[in-house]
Design a protein around this nucleic acid. Sequence first.
DNA 1: TATGAATGAGCGTTCATTCAT
DNA 2: TATGAATGAACGCTCATTCAT
Lengths: 192, 192, 192, 192
Amino acid sequence: MQKTVQKRTLKTRARLLDAATELVSQGGYEALRVEDVVKSAGVAKGTFFAHFQDKDALMAHLIGEKLAAIFDQVEQDPVPGSVAELIQALAPVHDFMTSERYVFDLLIRYSGAAAITEIGPIARCFERYVRVVETWLNTVPARRDVTSELLAEGVQAFAIQAMALTFCALHGSERFQDRLDIYLKAWLTPAA
Amino acid sequence: MQKTVQKRTLKTRARLLDAATELVSQGGYEALRVEDVVKSAGVAKGTFFAHFQDKDALMAHLIGEKLAAIFDQVEQDPVPGSVAELIQALAPVHDFMTSERYVFDLLIRYSGAAAITEIGPIARCFERYVRVVETWLNTVPARRDVTSELLAEGVQAFAIQAMALTFCALHGSERFQDRLDIYLKAWLTPAA
Amino acid sequence: MQKTVQKRTLKTRARLLDAATELVSQGGYEALRVEDVVKSAGVAKGTFFAHFQDKDALMAHLIGEKLAAIFDQVEQDPVPGSVAELIQALAPVHDFMTSERYVFDLLIRYSGAAAITEIGPIARCFERYVRVVETWLNTVPARRDVTSELLAEGVQAFAIQAMALTFCALHGSERFQDRLDIYLKAWLTPAA
Amino acid sequence: MQKTVQKRTLKTRARLLDAATELVSQGGYEALRVEDVVKSAGVAKGTFFAHFQDKDALMAHLIGEKLAAIFDQVEQDPVPGSVAELIQALAPVHDFMTSERYVFDLLIRYSGAAAITEIGPIARCFERYVRVVETWLNTVPARRDVTSELLAEGVQAFAIQAMALTFCALHGSERFQDRLDIYLKAWLTPAA
DNA sequence: TATGAATGAGCGTTCATTCAT
DNA sequence: TATGAATGAACGCTCATTCAT
């Protein structure tokens, strides 16, 4: 009996997520409204909040899920052997992160966001970002005087910096990848 | 004739800003209400929106102004001679930036925010951040194989990274300055 | 389940209407403020707009309701037996219609106003006006060469004409009823 | 010197009227904004109110002017010899009056409107309407047991009734002229 | 779990009109 | 006469979230 209930619960949750995903694919993340989600899923508004703490939780779930899928793909690609290849390998991640100003802001906001007990899906993605880059640094020529983890965190910091400047009228025209390339060469390359 | 008009305009604008500043000093940025501002300034609501595009524009102005004042102060302090001193010198800036979650979010949101034609006050502050650090790098021991500007941009990137983690349940407990210290030592010190 | 919900909805709507009616009785229609209505009804502003498209919709409802009540009363009065008595019988209706310039304007504006699918409450009242007069024409001596409905529509046309002139500086002094009397005698009386 | 001033005054007034007329021809009466008028005329807002009591005064002027021009034309057309021809002859007037709901409402509102000392341009038009029809009634077969003026006023009343029903969802589909034809035949024709 | 009406605080807007210069 | 910044009182709206059923 409990299983039956759980099944129904999961089904409702799935319907909400499906509806939300569909709506996002049509109008983007920023325009997503809880009302539209529940209408599209065919449930009542209250039901939504029985499944998600709040709208941000849904948002984080959707974006986290999407990023996880992107990382899954990225990790199947060939391992980069140079800074340029590393940037290229991360391109799908960065593209998504800058696909909407709203998405970027939310990612930053939740970059470290975690409830006290549970790590949020977005925080997990940033962790994964670091983990993946850390692994790649075994094959990418880089300085060895600091830990790979620190280097990877730096890559993330520089990527965020470059992405932020993408949205800036002053620097928007400069290419994101070119900028990141300069940053990462300086960060990763051992000073001769 | 034109001057007369401008004088009145400037006076009204000043009254709005003064009122807002006073209110912020009492209740913080997040709690600021447009209605309170106009009431306190003794002007009509319509007048507010004749002076500021929207509430965010006022917010950006206030925060930009505040940061400018902080930089004015910081630039009068002794020039730092080490990474540790550099972090210390920037402390007022970072403290303000992390004083309210709301402030940090708004800063990130408007970090590159600028209408196509005019640079926003916050974007200007981030520029100044880089400029100031760039100057300091003349007296702080740092690698010289890349431009000071690039190094300064990196300092900003790492500071933002460290600040973002400040708000994170996972890393909140670690001291912001310790984290930044590690980052900047790795970034600025020439890899042997 | 559906019934339960409807009951609450109806109750809220009734509270809004009661509050509005009370406020109108104190300060008239023109002075009615949405904010006062919701405050007095003890509901949220958002709730108001969930029940009424906009302020005008409430206004139309209130005025329609009031007119309906007046007609209810009028229809219980003795059936008129002459043009003079007909005018007298309609007096409560005309009095209300000219009680406030605002009311008259709104009546005209919504006299035919109806969403494409639903007939507005005011349009319904104008229909009722014709219906009632039509009935009376059985007992009021009048020409019989045209339908009673046509005659009744004419009575309405002349009443509006006379009411409009009531608000006119040129004719305001002339008595509404005298003017209407002249019109209706000419309209209803069979030309000898 | 006084003449010079007057000339300038008239010029400014003319520019305001020209600008307003042009804007109306583009966007209709309802959408006309004082701000657009002054901008287009190249004068300050305050200047507008030095020339027109208020916006309604401009509106009344514009519409009155337009109607006067229409009557000028109408009076040059052949004198009607029947009810049908009378309706046809008035068609340009009625067309304009129903061209915009806003125009119709304003006409009704000011149908009798006149400041205590000066008759408004719209009131004048309604007077002219009656005068013109009154004249025509010499050549149109009509009852003679009441004054032509009364008959003409009735024509106006029925025209307004028919126009109002034009805007009504219930009767909008029925043709205005057919309706008016029925009304006027009953009104003008001596009851046998 | 599900329902969905109700909440609620505040933002942005409107735009004719006024008034000090 | 001309100027145009300022007025001002509502209105309409937003929309995530709550809660009684």
